[in-house]
Nucleic acid binder design. Structure first.
Lengths: 249, 249
DNA sequence: ATGTTTTTTGCGGGTTTTTGCAATTTTTAT
DNA sequence: ATAAAAATTGCAAAAACCCGCAAAAAACAT
Protein backbone atom coordinates (compact mmCIF):
# COMPACT_ATOMS: atom_id res chain seq x y z
CA UNK A 1 0.00 0.00 0.00
CA UNK A 2 1.36 3.35 -1.04
CA UNK A 3 1.99 6.16 1.36
CA UNK A 4 -0.46 8.52 -0.35
CA UNK A 5 -3.05 5.79 -0.43
CA UNK A 6 -2.65 5.20 3.26
CA UNK A 7 -2.92 8.84 4.06
CA UNK A 8 -6.02 9.25 1.93
CA UNK A 9 -7.55 6.27 3.71
CA UNK A 10 -6.66 7.68 7.09
CA UNK A 11 -8.05 11.07 6.22
CA UNK A 12 -11.24 9.51 5.01
CA UNK A 13 -11.57 7.50 8.21
CA UNK A 14 -11.14 10.63 10.23
CA UNK A 15 -13.70 12.64 8.33
CA UNK A 16 -16.06 9.72 8.76
CA UNK A 17 -15.59 8.89 12.41
CA UNK A 18 -13.96 12.04 13.72
CA UNK A 19 -11.11 10.00 15.14
CA UNK A 20 -8.64 7.23 14.49
CA UNK A 21 -6.37 5.15 16.69
CA UNK A 22 -2.83 4.50 15.57
CA UNK A 23 -3.03 0.98 16.88
CA UNK A 24 -6.09 -0.05 14.90
CA UNK A 25 -4.86 1.65 11.75
CA UNK A 26 -1.57 -0.16 12.01
CA UNK A 27 -3.50 -3.34 12.40
CA UNK A 28 -5.90 -2.63 9.56
CA UNK A 29 -3.25 -1.96 6.99
CA UNK A 30 -0.41 -4.13 8.16
CA UNK A 31 2.17 -1.46 8.72
CA UNK A 32 4.04 -0.58 11.86
CA UNK A 33 2.69 1.99 14.23
CA UNK A 34 5.72 4.11 13.53
CA UNK A 35 4.61 4.41 9.95
CA UNK A 36 1.12 5.34 11.00
CA UNK A 37 2.52 7.92 13.36
CA UNK A 38 4.58 9.40 10.57
CA UNK A 39 1.52 9.52 8.33
CA UNK A 40 -0.47 11.20 11.05
CA UNK A 41 2.35 13.65 11.55
CA UNK A 42 2.37 14.47 7.85
CA UNK A 43 -1.38 15.00 7.78
CA UNK A 44 -1.10 17.15 10.87
CA UNK A 45 1.71 19.20 9.35
CA UNK A 46 -0.52 19.88 6.38
CA UNK A 47 -3.10 21.06 8.88
CA UNK A 48 -5.66 18.52 7.78
CA UNK A 49 -6.03 16.67 11.08
CA UNK A 50 -5.18 17.09 14.73
CA UNK A 51 -2.72 14.58 16.08
CA UNK A 52 -3.12 13.48 19.67
CA UNK A 53 -1.65 10.87 21.93
CA UNK A 54 -2.84 7.53 20.61
CA UNK A 55 -4.22 8.64 17.28
CA UNK A 56 -5.73 11.70 15.65
CA UNK A 57 -8.92 13.72 15.55
CA UNK A 58 -10.81 15.66 12.95
CA UNK A 59 -10.21 19.36 12.94
CA UNK A 60 -13.77 20.15 13.80
CA UNK A 61 -12.87 18.95 17.26
CA UNK A 62 -12.14 21.42 20.00
CA UNK A 63 -11.95 25.02 19.16
CA UNK A 64 -10.32 26.01 15.92
CA UNK A 65 -6.96 27.71 15.77
CA UNK A 66 -6.68 30.95 13.86
CA UNK A 67 -9.66 33.26 14.18
CA UNK A 68 -7.95 35.95 12.15
CA UNK A 69 -7.47 33.83 9.09
CA UNK A 70 -11.02 32.59 9.43
CA UNK A 71 -12.51 36.03 9.58
CA UNK A 72 -10.56 36.96 6.52
CA UNK A 73 -11.93 34.05 4.54
CA UNK A 74 -15.31 34.91 5.95
CA UNK A 75 -15.24 38.34 4.35
CA UNK A 76 -14.32 36.79 1.04
CA UNK A 77 -17.18 34.40 1.31
CA UNK A 78 -19.60 37.24 1.89
CA UNK A 79 -18.50 38.77 -1.38
CA UNK A 80 -19.03 35.48 -3.14
CA UNK A 81 -22.41 35.01 -1.50
CA UNK A 82 -23.54 38.42 -2.63
CA UNK A 83 -22.78 37.60 -6.22
CA UNK A 84 -24.52 34.25 -5.94
CA UNK A 85 -27.67 35.64 -4.35
CA UNK A 86 -28.14 37.86 -7.37
CA UNK A 87 -28.67 34.77 -9.51
CA UNK A 88 -31.59 33.51 -7.48
CA UNK A 89 -35.06 34.44 -8.70
CA UNK A 90 -38.54 33.91 -7.38
CA UNK A 91 -39.95 30.50 -8.04
CA UNK A 92 -36.66 28.71 -8.58
CA UNK A 93 -35.84 25.20 -7.41
CA UNK A 94 -32.30 25.23 -6.12
CA UNK A 95 -30.08 22.31 -5.15
CA UNK A 96 -27.22 23.16 -2.82
CA UNK A 97 -24.28 21.39 -1.26
CA UNK A 98 -22.96 22.24 2.18
CA UNK A 99 -20.01 24.35 3.21
CA UNK A 100 -19.46 27.73 4.75
CA UNK A 101 -19.90 29.63 1.53
CA UNK A 102 -23.32 28.12 1.00
CA UNK A 103 -24.16 28.98 4.57
CA UNK A 104 -23.26 32.57 3.89
CA UNK A 105 -25.62 32.60 0.94
CA UNK A 106 -28.37 31.13 3.08
CA UNK A 107 -27.97 33.99 5.54
CA UNK A 108 -28.06 36.62 2.81
CA UNK A 109 -31.22 35.54 1.06
CA UNK A 110 -33.65 38.44 0.82
CA UNK A 111 -36.65 38.07 3.10
CA UNK A 112 -39.22 38.32 0.36
CA UNK A 113 -37.65 35.71 -1.89
CA UNK A 114 -39.99 32.82 -2.71
CA UNK A 115 -38.07 29.77 -3.79
CA UNK A 116 -37.49 26.10 -2.99
CA UNK A 117 -34.15 25.02 -1.60
CA UNK A 118 -33.13 21.38 -1.60
CA UNK A 119 -30.07 20.21 0.27
CA UNK A 120 -28.53 17.44 2.32
CA UNK A 121 -26.52 19.85 4.42
CA UNK A 122 -28.00 20.14 7.88
CA UNK A 123 -26.54 23.54 8.77
CA UNK A 124 -27.63 24.96 5.42
CA UNK A 125 -31.14 23.58 5.81
CA UNK A 126 -31.47 25.09 9.25
CA UNK A 127 -30.48 28.43 7.79
CA UNK A 128 -32.92 28.17 4.89
CA UNK A 129 -35.68 27.27 7.32
CA UNK A 130 -35.35 30.65 8.98
CA UNK A 131 -36.67 32.37 5.89
CA UNK A 132 -40.44 32.72 5.94
CA UNK A 133 -41.09 32.40 2.22
CA UNK A 134 -38.68 29.66 1.37
CA UNK A 135 -39.70 26.07 1.04
CA UNK A 136 -37.05 23.68 2.25
CA UNK A 137 -36.54 20.06 1.22
CA UNK A 138 -34.03 18.02 3.13
CA UNK A 139 -32.36 15.12 1.37
CA UNK A 140 -32.16 12.23 3.79
CA UNK A 141 -29.61 9.45 4.25
CA UNK A 142 -26.70 8.55 6.44
CA UNK A 143 -25.21 11.57 8.17
CA UNK A 144 -21.55 12.30 7.68
CA UNK A 145 -20.61 13.50 11.12
CA UNK A 146 -17.79 15.70 10.12
CA UNK A 147 -19.45 17.74 7.42
CA UNK A 148 -23.01 17.38 8.70
CA UNK A 149 -24.34 16.42 5.32
CA UNK A 150 -26.16 13.32 4.21
CA UNK A 151 -24.49 10.91 1.81
CA UNK A 152 -25.33 7.57 0.30
CA UNK A 153 -27.44 5.79 -2.26
CA UNK A 154 -30.78 7.02 -1.04
CA UNK A 155 -29.66 10.61 -1.16
CA UNK A 156 -28.35 10.16 -4.69
CA UNK A 157 -31.50 8.37 -5.84
CA UNK A 158 -33.64 11.16 -4.47
CA UNK A 159 -31.57 13.84 -6.13
CA UNK A 160 -31.79 12.05 -9.46
CA UNK A 161 -35.57 12.25 -9.29
CA UNK A 162 -35.38 16.01 -9.29
CA UNK A 163 -34.81 18.62 -11.92
CA UNK A 164 -33.64 21.83 -10.34
CA UNK A 165 -33.14 25.19 -12.00
CA UNK A 166 -29.85 25.82 -10.29
CA UNK A 167 -27.19 23.99 -8.37
CA UNK A 168 -25.09 26.02 -5.97
CA UNK A 169 -21.97 24.09 -5.24
CA UNK A 170 -19.22 24.92 -2.79
CA UNK A 171 -15.99 23.45 -4.09
CA UNK A 172 -12.92 22.17 -2.35
CA UNK A 173 -10.54 22.47 -5.23
CA UNK A 174 -10.79 23.60 -8.84
CA UNK A 175 -8.21 23.63 -11.52
CA UNK A 176 -8.28 23.90 -15.26
CA UNK A 177 -6.90 20.45 -15.95
CA UNK A 178 -8.58 18.36 -13.23
CA UNK A 179 -11.87 20.24 -13.03
CA UNK A 180 -13.70 20.19 -9.72
CA UNK A 181 -12.10 17.77 -7.29
CA UNK A 182 -12.72 16.67 -3.73
CA UNK A 183 -11.42 14.20 -1.17
CA UNK A 184 -14.43 12.27 0.05
CA UNK A 185 -15.85 9.64 -2.20
CA UNK A 186 -19.37 9.75 -0.76
CA UNK A 187 -19.59 13.49 -1.03
CA UNK A 188 -18.38 13.40 -4.60
CA UNK A 189 -21.13 10.98 -5.57
CA UNK A 190 -23.73 13.32 -4.19
CA UNK A 191 -22.26 16.33 -5.94
CA UNK A 192 -22.23 14.48 -9.23
CA UNK A 193 -25.89 13.67 -8.87
CA UNK A 194 -26.66 17.28 -8.08
CA UNK A 195 -24.93 18.54 -11.19
CA UNK A 196 -26.75 15.98 -13.27
CA UNK A 197 -30.11 17.01 -11.88
CA UNK A 198 -29.68 20.74 -12.41
CA UNK A 199 -30.13 22.86 -15.49
CA UNK A 200 -27.29 25.12 -14.48
CA UNK A 201 -24.46 24.59 -12.05
CA UNK A 202 -22.78 27.47 -10.26
CA UNK A 203 -19.51 26.83 -8.46
CA UNK A 204 -18.44 28.92 -5.52
CA UNK A 205 -14.81 29.07 -4.55
CA UNK A 206 -12.49 31.42 -2.77
CA UNK A 207 -9.55 32.14 -5.04
CA UNK A 208 -7.23 30.29 -2.70
CA UNK A 209 -8.73 27.04 -3.91
CA UNK A 210 -8.21 27.84 -7.55
CA UNK A 211 -5.48 25.85 -9.21
CA UNK A 212 -5.42 23.25 -6.48
CA UNK A 213 -6.72 19.72 -6.78
CA UNK A 214 -7.71 16.72 -4.72
CA UNK A 215 -7.78 12.99 -5.40
CA UNK A 216 -11.34 12.51 -6.63
CA UNK A 217 -12.96 14.29 -9.56
CA UNK A 218 -16.46 15.67 -9.31
CA UNK A 219 -16.63 16.85 -12.89
CA UNK A 220 -14.59 18.52 -15.60
CA UNK A 221 -14.97 22.27 -15.85
CA UNK A 222 -17.09 22.13 -18.98
CA UNK A 223 -19.98 20.82 -16.92
CA UNK A 224 -19.95 23.98 -14.85
CA UNK A 225 -21.82 26.97 -16.18
CA UNK A 226 -20.74 29.66 -13.78
CA UNK A 227 -17.80 30.20 -11.46
CA UNK A 228 -17.99 32.71 -8.65
CA UNK A 229 -14.98 33.89 -6.68
CA UNK A 230 -14.26 36.95 -4.64
CA UNK A 231 -12.00 38.27 -7.39
CA UNK A 232 -12.82 40.61 -10.20
CA UNK A 233 -13.87 38.52 -13.23
CA UNK A 234 -11.13 40.18 -15.24
CA UNK A 235 -8.46 38.88 -12.91
CA UNK A 236 -5.55 37.07 -14.45
CA UNK A 237 -6.08 33.94 -12.38
CA UNK A 238 -9.53 33.44 -13.84
CA UNK A 239 -8.45 33.77 -17.46
CA UNK A 240 -8.23 30.00 -18.16
CA UNK A 241 -11.79 29.51 -17.00
CA UNK A 242 -13.12 32.38 -19.07
CA UNK A 243 -11.31 30.96 -22.07
CA UNK A 244 -12.87 27.58 -21.41
CA UNK A 245 -16.23 29.21 -21.94
CA UNK A 246 -17.32 29.49 -18.32
CA UNK A 247 -19.35 32.37 -17.10
CA UNK A 248 -17.12 33.94 -14.47
CA UNK A 249 -18.53 36.41 -11.97
CA UNK B 1 -11.29 6.55 24.15
CA UNK B 2 -8.80 9.28 23.49
CA UNK B 3 -7.99 11.84 26.11
CA UNK B 4 -8.94 14.78 23.92
CA UNK B 5 -12.13 13.01 23.00
CA UNK B 6 -13.02 12.59 26.62
CA UNK B 7 -12.33 16.20 27.32
CA UNK B 8 -14.39 17.34 24.37
CA UNK B 9 -17.23 15.16 25.57
CA UNK B 10 -16.96 16.53 29.08
CA UNK B 11 -16.88 20.08 27.82
CA UNK B 12 -19.92 19.44 25.72
CA UNK B 13 -21.76 17.97 28.68
CA UNK B 14 -20.92 20.98 30.77
CA UNK B 15 -22.03 23.52 28.21
CA UNK B 16 -25.20 21.51 27.86
CA UNK B 17 -26.16 20.91 31.46
CA UNK B 18 -24.07 23.55 33.17
CA UNK B 19 -22.57 20.97 35.48
CA UNK B 20 -21.09 17.49 35.59
CA UNK B 21 -20.32 15.00 38.36
CA UNK B 22 -16.98 13.22 38.29
CA UNK B 23 -18.63 10.05 39.47
CA UNK B 24 -21.16 9.82 36.67
CA UNK B 25 -18.62 10.78 34.05
CA UNK B 26 -16.29 8.08 35.28
CA UNK B 27 -19.14 5.66 35.08
CA UNK B 28 -20.24 6.74 31.62
CA UNK B 29 -16.88 6.44 30.00
CA UNK B 30 -15.40 3.57 31.92
CA UNK B 31 -12.37 5.33 33.30
CA UNK B 32 -11.32 5.90 36.86
CA UNK B 33 -12.40 9.00 38.69
CA UNK B 34 -8.77 9.96 38.93
CA UNK B 35 -8.65 10.27 35.19
CA UNK B 36 -11.80 12.34 35.13
CA UNK B 37 -10.39 14.58 37.80
CA UNK B 38 -7.25 15.07 35.78
CA UNK B 39 -9.32 15.86 32.70
CA UNK B 40 -11.34 18.39 34.63
CA UNK B 41 -8.13 19.87 35.92
CA UNK B 42 -6.80 20.23 32.39
CA UNK B 43 -10.00 21.87 31.21
CA UNK B 44 -9.92 24.17 34.22
CA UNK B 45 -6.27 25.07 33.59
CA UNK B 46 -7.24 26.08 30.09
CA UNK B 47 -9.88 28.25 31.69
CA UNK B 48 -12.73 26.51 29.93
CA UNK B 49 -14.60 25.27 32.98
CA UNK B 50 -14.74 25.82 36.72
CA UNK B 51 -13.72 22.84 38.77
CA UNK B 52 -15.55 22.23 42.03
CA UNK B 53 -15.75 19.43 44.53
CA UNK B 54 -17.45 16.48 42.96
CA UNK B 55 -17.34 17.74 39.41
CA UNK B 56 -17.25 20.96 37.43
CA UNK B 57 -19.40 23.86 36.31
CA UNK B 58 -19.77 25.90 33.18
CA UNK B 59 -18.20 29.27 33.65
CA UNK B 60 -20.71 31.08 31.50
CA UNK B 61 -23.24 30.25 34.13
CA UNK B 62 -23.56 33.11 36.57
CA UNK B 63 -23.29 32.46 40.25
CA UNK B 64 -26.90 33.28 41.03
CA UNK B 65 -29.16 30.39 41.93
CA UNK B 66 -31.09 28.54 39.30
CA UNK B 67 -33.93 30.38 37.59
CA UNK B 68 -36.27 27.74 38.90
CA UNK B 69 -39.28 28.06 36.68
CA UNK B 70 -37.56 27.22 33.44
CA UNK B 71 -35.25 24.59 34.82
CA UNK B 72 -38.22 22.80 36.26
CA UNK B 73 -39.62 21.29 33.10
CA UNK B 74 -36.09 20.75 32.00
CA UNK B 75 -35.32 18.72 35.10
CA UNK B 76 -38.40 16.63 34.57
CA UNK B 77 -37.30 15.86 31.07
CA UNK B 78 -33.93 14.82 32.34
CA UNK B 79 -35.57 12.29 34.60
CA UNK B 80 -37.55 10.93 31.70
CA UNK B 81 -34.49 10.85 29.50
CA UNK B 82 -32.59 8.90 32.10
CA UNK B 83 -35.22 6.23 32.21
CA UNK B 84 -35.37 6.06 28.43
CA UNK B 85 -31.61 5.80 27.99
CA UNK B 86 -31.64 2.68 30.10
CA UNK B 87 -33.71 0.94 27.44
CA UNK B 88 -31.17 1.49 24.71
CA UNK B 89 -28.72 -1.33 24.11
CA UNK B 90 -25.74 -1.76 21.86
CA UNK B 91 -26.59 -2.62 18.30
CA UNK B 92 -30.14 -1.32 18.32
CA UNK B 93 -31.86 0.50 15.47
CA UNK B 94 -33.87 3.31 16.96
CA UNK B 95 -36.45 5.55 15.31
CA UNK B 96 -37.08 8.83 17.05
CA UNK B 97 -39.35 11.81 16.67
CA UNK B 98 -38.29 15.33 17.60
CA UNK B 99 -39.01 17.40 20.67
CA UNK B 100 -37.12 18.60 23.68
CA UNK B 101 -37.42 15.35 25.57
CA UNK B 102 -35.86 13.44 22.73
CA UNK B 103 -33.14 16.05 22.61
CA UNK B 104 -32.44 15.44 26.25
CA UNK B 105 -32.07 11.75 25.56
CA UNK B 106 -29.70 12.48 22.72
CA UNK B 107 -27.54 14.47 25.09
CA UNK B 108 -27.51 11.78 27.70
CA UNK B 109 -26.50 8.87 25.53
CA UNK B 110 -23.43 7.21 27.01
CA UNK B 111 -20.29 7.83 25.06
CA UNK B 112 -19.53 4.20 24.40
CA UNK B 113 -22.98 3.27 23.11
CA UNK B 114 -22.96 1.79 19.60
CA UNK B 115 -26.33 2.08 17.95
CA UNK B 116 -28.09 3.46 14.89
CA UNK B 117 -30.46 6.38 15.30
CA UNK B 118 -32.93 7.28 12.59
CA UNK B 119 -34.86 10.50 12.72
CA UNK B 120 -36.36 13.34 10.78
CA UNK B 121 -35.71 15.83 13.50
CA UNK B 122 -32.86 18.12 12.59
CA UNK B 123 -31.90 19.18 16.13
CA UNK B 124 -31.99 15.58 17.31
CA UNK B 125 -29.85 14.41 14.42
CA UNK B 126 -27.27 17.09 15.13
CA UNK B 127 -27.09 15.91 18.69
CA UNK B 128 -26.80 12.25 17.72
CA UNK B 129 -24.02 13.12 15.32
CA UNK B 130 -21.88 14.35 18.17
CA UNK B 131 -21.57 10.87 19.56
CA UNK B 132 -18.57 9.08 18.13
CA UNK B 133 -20.00 5.57 18.06
CA UNK B 134 -23.49 6.28 16.87
CA UNK B 135 -24.56 5.92 13.28
CA UNK B 136 -27.09 8.51 12.22
CA UNK B 137 -29.66 8.28 9.45
CA UNK B 138 -31.62 11.36 8.57
CA UNK B 139 -35.06 10.94 7.06
CA UNK B 140 -35.44 13.48 4.31
CA UNK B 141 -38.43 15.41 3.01
CA UNK B 142 -40.03 18.81 3.28
CA UNK B 143 -38.88 20.68 6.37
CA UNK B 144 -41.49 21.86 8.82
CA UNK B 145 -40.05 25.20 9.88
CA UNK B 146 -41.50 25.38 13.35
CA UNK B 147 -40.55 21.98 14.60
CA UNK B 148 -37.48 21.49 12.40
CA UNK B 149 -38.53 18.03 11.40
CA UNK B 150 -39.17 16.56 8.00
CA UNK B 151 -42.69 15.56 7.01
CA UNK B 152 -44.37 14.22 3.91
CA UNK B 153 -44.88 11.20 1.73
CA UNK B 154 -41.23 10.55 1.05
CA UNK B 155 -40.41 10.53 4.73
CA UNK B 156 -43.27 8.16 5.45
CA UNK B 157 -42.32 5.87 2.58
CA UNK B 158 -38.76 5.70 3.82
CA UNK B 159 -39.82 4.93 7.36
CA UNK B 160 -42.06 2.14 6.14
CA UNK B 161 -39.08 0.47 4.52
CA UNK B 162 -37.44 0.13 7.92
CA UNK B 163 -37.90 -2.20 10.82
CA UNK B 164 -36.48 -0.62 13.95
CA UNK B 165 -36.03 -2.22 17.35
CA UNK B 166 -37.39 0.74 19.19
CA UNK B 167 -39.33 3.91 18.57
CA UNK B 168 -38.81 6.75 20.99
CA UNK B 169 -41.71 9.11 20.65
CA UNK B 170 -42.18 12.43 22.34
CA UNK B 171 -45.88 13.02 22.76
CA UNK B 172 -47.97 16.14 22.88
CA UNK B 173 -50.96 14.70 24.64
CA UNK B 174 -51.96 11.33 25.98
CA UNK B 175 -55.14 10.20 27.59
CA UNK B 176 -56.75 6.90 28.28
CA UNK B 177 -59.72 7.38 26.00
CA UNK B 178 -58.16 9.18 23.02
CA UNK B 179 -54.73 7.57 23.11
CA UNK B 180 -51.83 9.59 21.77
CA UNK B 181 -53.01 12.75 20.08
CA UNK B 182 -51.37 15.67 18.35
CA UNK B 183 -52.24 18.83 16.47
CA UNK B 184 -50.30 18.70 13.23
CA UNK B 185 -51.58 16.44 10.54
CA UNK B 186 -48.24 15.96 8.79
CA UNK B 187 -46.44 15.15 11.99
CA UNK B 188 -49.09 12.63 12.95
CA UNK B 189 -48.66 10.78 9.67
CA UNK B 190 -44.94 10.45 10.30
CA UNK B 191 -45.47 9.26 13.85
CA UNK B 192 -47.93 6.63 12.71
CA UNK B 193 -45.42 5.30 10.24
CA UNK B 194 -42.77 5.18 12.91
CA UNK B 195 -44.92 3.14 15.25
CA UNK B 196 -45.76 0.77 12.45
CA UNK B 197 -42.11 0.26 11.60
CA UNK B 198 -40.91 -0.43 15.11
CA UNK B 199 -41.03 -3.56 17.18
CA UNK B 200 -41.62 -1.60 20.33
CA UNK B 201 -42.83 1.93 20.87
CA UNK B 202 -41.88 3.96 23.91
CA UNK B 203 -43.77 7.15 24.64
CA UNK B 204 -42.19 9.98 26.57
CA UNK B 205 -44.34 12.53 28.28
CA UNK B 206 -44.14 14.89 31.21
CA UNK B 207 -47.04 14.23 33.52
CA UNK B 208 -48.54 17.61 32.70
CA UNK B 209 -49.55 16.23 29.33
CA UNK B 210 -51.26 13.21 30.74
CA UNK B 211 -55.02 13.27 30.48
CA UNK B 212 -55.02 15.98 27.88
CA UNK B 213 -55.85 15.52 24.24
CA UNK B 214 -55.53 17.17 20.88
CA UNK B 215 -57.54 17.02 17.66
CA UNK B 216 -55.70 14.31 15.73
CA UNK B 217 -55.07 10.79 16.92
CA UNK B 218 -51.69 9.17 16.44
CA UNK B 219 -52.71 5.83 17.88
CA UNK B 220 -54.73 4.26 20.66
CA UNK B 221 -52.81 3.40 23.79
CA UNK B 222 -52.79 -0.32 23.11
CA UNK B 223 -50.26 0.26 20.33
CA UNK B 224 -47.80 1.70 22.82
CA UNK B 225 -45.61 -0.70 24.72
CA UNK B 226 -44.04 1.59 27.24
CA UNK B 227 -44.86 4.94 28.78
CA UNK B 228 -42.22 7.00 30.53
CA UNK B 229 -42.97 10.00 32.69
CA UNK B 230 -41.09 11.76 35.43
CA UNK B 231 -43.43 10.26 38.01
CA UNK B 232 -43.03 7.14 40.05
CA UNK B 233 -44.67 4.25 38.15
CA UNK B 234 -46.89 3.61 41.16
CA UNK B 235 -48.37 7.09 40.97
CA UNK B 236 -52.13 7.36 40.98
CA UNK B 237 -52.23 9.28 37.70
CA UNK B 238 -50.62 6.41 35.84
CA UNK B 239 -52.97 3.76 37.14
CA UNK B 240 -55.24 3.68 34.05
CA UNK B 241 -52.27 3.07 31.78
CA UNK B 242 -50.90 0.30 33.94
CA UNK B 243 -54.33 -1.29 33.96
CA UNK B 244 -54.47 -1.03 30.20
CA UNK B 245 -51.45 -3.30 30.08
CA UNK B 246 -48.80 -0.71 29.32
CA UNK B 247 -45.35 -0.98 30.72
CA UNK B 248 -45.03 2.20 32.76
CA UNK B 249 -41.63 3.39 33.94
C1' DA C 1 18.26 -3.00 -18.06
C1' DT C 2 21.55 -1.41 -14.52
C1' DG C 3 23.44 1.17 -11.06
C1' DT C 4 22.73 5.26 -8.14
C1' DT C 5 20.13 8.26 -5.34
C1' DT C 6 16.26 9.20 -2.61
C1' DT C 7 12.45 7.88 0.06
C1' DT C 8 10.19 4.92 2.96
C1' DT C 9 9.87 1.55 6.43
C1' DG C 10 10.65 -1.31 10.57
C1' DC C 11 13.22 -1.92 14.64
C1' DG C 12 15.88 -1.35 18.94
C1' DG C 13 16.86 1.67 22.49
C1' DG C 14 15.48 5.28 25.87
C1' DT C 15 12.00 8.88 27.08
C1' DT C 16 7.53 10.68 28.01
C1' DT C 17 2.55 10.34 28.76
C1' DT C 18 -1.19 8.28 30.56
C1' DT C 19 -3.61 5.71 33.75
C1' DG C 20 -5.11 3.26 37.86
C1' DC C 21 -4.12 2.19 42.62
C1' DA C 22 -3.02 2.94 47.46
C1' DA C 23 -2.17 5.92 51.26
C1' DT C 24 -3.09 10.39 53.16
C1' DT C 25 -5.35 14.69 53.57
C1' DT C 26 -9.14 17.74 52.82
C1' DT C 27 -13.84 18.74 52.26
C1' DT C 28 -18.77 17.88 52.91
C1' DA C 29 -22.68 16.22 55.28
C1' DT C 30 -25.15 14.30 59.06
C1' DA D 1 -17.87 15.06 66.05
C1' DT D 2 -17.68 11.55 63.11
C1' DA D 3 -18.30 9.16 58.89
C1' DA D 4 -18.46 9.35 54.01
C1' DA D 5 -17.06 11.36 49.75
C1' DA D 6 -13.74 13.61 47.08
C1' DA D 7 -8.92 15.50 46.39
C1' DT D 8 -4.18 15.08 46.48
C1' DT D 9 0.18 12.85 46.21
C1' DG D 10 3.38 9.51 44.94
C1' DC D 11 4.26 5.51 42.44
C1' DA D 12 4.53 1.86 39.05
C1' DA D 13 3.05 -0.47 34.81
C1' DA D 14 1.55 -0.03 30.31
C1' DA D 15 1.16 2.41 26.23
C1' DA D 16 2.70 5.69 23.09
C1' DC D 17 6.36 8.44 21.47
C1' DC D 18 10.86 10.00 19.57
C1' DC D 19 15.52 9.25 17.60
C1' DG D 20 18.76 7.29 14.83
C1' DC D 21 19.99 3.61 11.82
C1' DA D 22 20.05 0.22 8.33
C1' DA D 23 17.45 -2.63 5.16
C1' DA D 24 14.10 -2.38 1.58
C1' DA D 25 11.55 -0.08 -1.90
C1' DA D 26 10.84 3.37 -5.19
C1' DA D 27 12.41 6.79 -8.22
C1' DC D 28 15.72 8.37 -11.24
C1' DA D 29 19.35 8.72 -14.56
C1' DT D 30 22.32 6.64 -17.66
Amino acid sequence: MLKKERQAFIFHQISLHNKVLSASLSDEMNVSEDTIRRDLQDLADEGRIIKVHGGALSQSFGYGGTPDAKIYAHELKKIIAQKAVALIKDGMFILTTGGTTILEIARMLPAQLKATFISGSIPAVLEYARHPNIEVILIGDKVNKNSKITVGGDAIAKIKQLKADLCLMGVNAIDHAHGITDNDWDVVQVKKAMIESSQKTVCLSISEKINSFQPIQVCPINEINTLITELDPANEVLRPFVNAGMNVL
